[in-house]
Nucleic acid binder design. Sequence first.
DNA 1: GCATATTTGTCCGTATGTATA
DNA 2: CTATACATACGGACAAATATG
Lengths: 239, 239
Amino acid sequence: MAGPTARDSAPTGAQPDPWPDLLAEDHALLDRTSTAERVADALRQLIIDGRLLPGTRLSEQSAGKALAVSRNTLREAFRLLVHERLLVHEFHRGVYVRVLGADDVTDLYRTRRLLETGALRGSSATRRGGLAAIEEAVADAEQAAADERWLDVGTANMRFHQAIVALAGSPRTDEIMRQLTAELRLAFHAKPEPRPFHEPYIARNREIATQLAAGEVDAATRALEAYLTDAERQLLDAF
Amino acid sequence: MAGPTARDSAPTGAQPDPWPDLLAEDHALLDRTSTAERVADALRQLIIDGRLLPGTRLSEQSAGKALAVSRNTLREAFRLLVHERLLVHEFHRGVYVRVLGADDVTDLYRTRRLLETGALRGSSATRRGGLAAIEEAVADAEQAAADERWLDVGTANMRFHQAIVALAGSPRTDEIMRQLTAELRLAFHAKPEPRPFHEPYIARNREIATQLAAGEVDAATRALEAYLTDAERQLLDAF
DNA sequence: GCATATTTGTCCGTATGTATA
DNA sequence: CTATACATACGGACAAATATG
């Protein structure tokens, strides 16, 4: 699998290869990827960053001109993002940045609870590298809060939860969690006050991280469940 | 949101509307959907049914001719299925029906364990309708086994697990599980002997269903975990 | 309610780049 | 190395549906 593109025939000099292994991996370098995927990446980032707000219409013509791609290519990118639930597609009417409803928030937290508490329970004190990632996310959130960079606090908080799910050691679960958090951003961007949505949870993240480091998995799981319940209610109250 | 397409103005006659609410919902009727999605549905079904085996190459030209759609439309459908991991896309080489590796099987079962046991734990004796769906899936599997329809046994078994996850009451979780089971079919189709892969589990499904009906959630969870461990090992032994 | 303009859905032709016999 | 086949990406065309005046 994944043909290594063998480069047996080195140039017959003594000089070592000045290009270390940039090939042989996936790397977005030198567009070893389709433009549709790159367009999807760009649009996804715009949505996650809140520069394309929920409800915004993305016309094929204007978006295609802005991104300098043809309509066909753009439509392929749209399909990907619709599949990720970041866009909605209304037949013969175009695509829009998704607007979450209260039921979406409820469902997102239900799914998160399943994944996150399951990952905690399953990782019985193992996986030391995973704890390091959790610790780092908490530290980043604390630093960002000290600098009053509330949006970065939100990003670090999400990295914290991503790191918790990573304890399960499953690439597919990681990918599922990535999509859920991207979708959750839509709810955050609907409300323009980042500070009260993120600040209260820094201390609770710290507490959970400490409990995990001490091997108190059950306590950490209960704390995480309470965390998710409170965060969900806070988001729902905004509706 | 989700514009209800209000039909306030009823026709002013005494006659009741002969067309009950076919509008106002999603409805696949009268192709209220794009051809790309229909093509994706068709291809997905072909893969799930094993009529397109893992490793098969799907050229744009021949597939487009067979399905009578243009290459552009076909490419949109390909993007969807690649995103669902049923196809793989090798740049400038085309798309292929995915071939699972041992690591994929391991990861699939890791994720299933997380979802299925989590759904069981979370559904503390609630949701009676959910138990009915579980019971029905088990009964279907038993009937199919009696008729020696082993492929249908496999389908019913998967419905059983889908019904377990449905206890979580989350549409997103249901959708995730759907994709996982579709992906798992790829592993089954790699091995052409359906009977030994499905038959041994019918009795175990029955046991789990009985335990659930009796409210013995912990026992059912342990039985389900053992089930998944055994099924995973059996698939891995086939490599 | 009607006529028009705009936008999407779908297809086709084609130039370019890439992989493979 | 060349030739062939194919994927990539673009642009144009037309029908169908929707939005607008």
